[in-house]
Design a protein around this nucleic acid. Sequence first.
DNA 1: GCTGATTTACTCGGATACACACTGTCCGAGTTTAGTTGG
DNA 2: CCAACTAAACTCGGACAGTGTGTATCCGAGTAAATCAGC
Lengths: 165, 165
Amino acid sequence: MKISEGVEAAIHCAAVLAGIEKGTTLPASALAELHGLSPTYLVKHLKQLVAAKLLESVPGPHGGYRLAKKPSAISLLDIVLAVEGPKPAFRCAEIRQRGPGALEPEAYVKPCGINAAMLRAERAWRAALAAEKLSDVIAGYEESADPRAVAFNCAFLARHQRPQG
Amino acid sequence: MKISEGVEAAIHCAAVLAGIEKGTTLPASALAELHGLSPTYLVKHLKQLVAAKLLESVPGPHGGYRLAKKPSAISLLDIVLAVEGPKPAFRCAEIRQRGPGALEPEAYVKPCGINAAMLRAERAWRAALAAEKLSDVIAGYEESADPRAVAFNCAFLARHQRPQG
DNA sequence: GCTGATTTACTCGGATACACACTGTCCGAGTTTAGTTGG
DNA sequence: CCAACTAAACTCGGACAGTGTGTATCCGAGTAAATCAGC
């Protein structure tokens, strides 16, 4: 079981986009350069965030990406689900219906207890992720990160953000 | 993100092994047949459970597997970790250290806030899994499963379990 | 100087390799019981 | 009748393909601002 690296990249990008001025956008190339990621691959994840209505994209020159909501209205769960998809990590293969003692499918109306237990645990995970807001992540970053890194990021944003209706 | 099917197989096998009589074992071939799984592949997962000290194996003829602990002392987390490995699902790639604004590695003594948030959520997931005991799963099965399936499983166990010191 | 065509810079969507983990099979080795053989 | 030997059943451990998912790149298409040409 492994969460894809795209999730980490998406969260970082969302946090950065929270820092640009209102009414401006940041092109994907700037996000990729800032994080040292592949520009073409990062775009795939950004598009997933746009499809989930967490980001907005502006096409054309001086276009780019910006947040579609306030950072306090975006949770890490929103980002994880946008990138990983909505399906739960535990997918019951219904092996209880496979052996020589299998009954007709109509006999299995009650959900598999193992599946139910695993999904309960997964709901706890999602609830914890939903409680982690993007605004909290940013607040934690600003108070614990190296001042030089913060200054560099601010200067980088000021250099690359573009005004946009 | 996807949990391997081996986890589901391992939990089913552990639940079945909880049903054999004390002092007996069940060969892997019987477990595979009962669940309609590949015998050779199932052994891989059973060995992982043995390595985690959740099961015990007895070699030789009339050998097989049995639980190493009481069902109430085995949690679903134990089984998941035995099969999937102990590493967390979210593995921080430290992309904060990769861009043009990266500092020397010594500047990143404080953990990445994003990583910390993801690991907090994962701890919630593990805590929920640790609360789900194998004995609870079995109790839920016995009360909600079709009586015909229960009867078949009991007969199957009585037919295949082998006495063993 | 103003309007319209062209260029440019960016997003969008799909097609295409590549790497790695999960799935599944096979073989040889080790261990213990059951059955067989020889005295 | 008893002891040693052989055969059988099972686990153990590693080596080996097949498959699917995540990673990464590239190309063509669409969009809108900026630039340039022509009147």
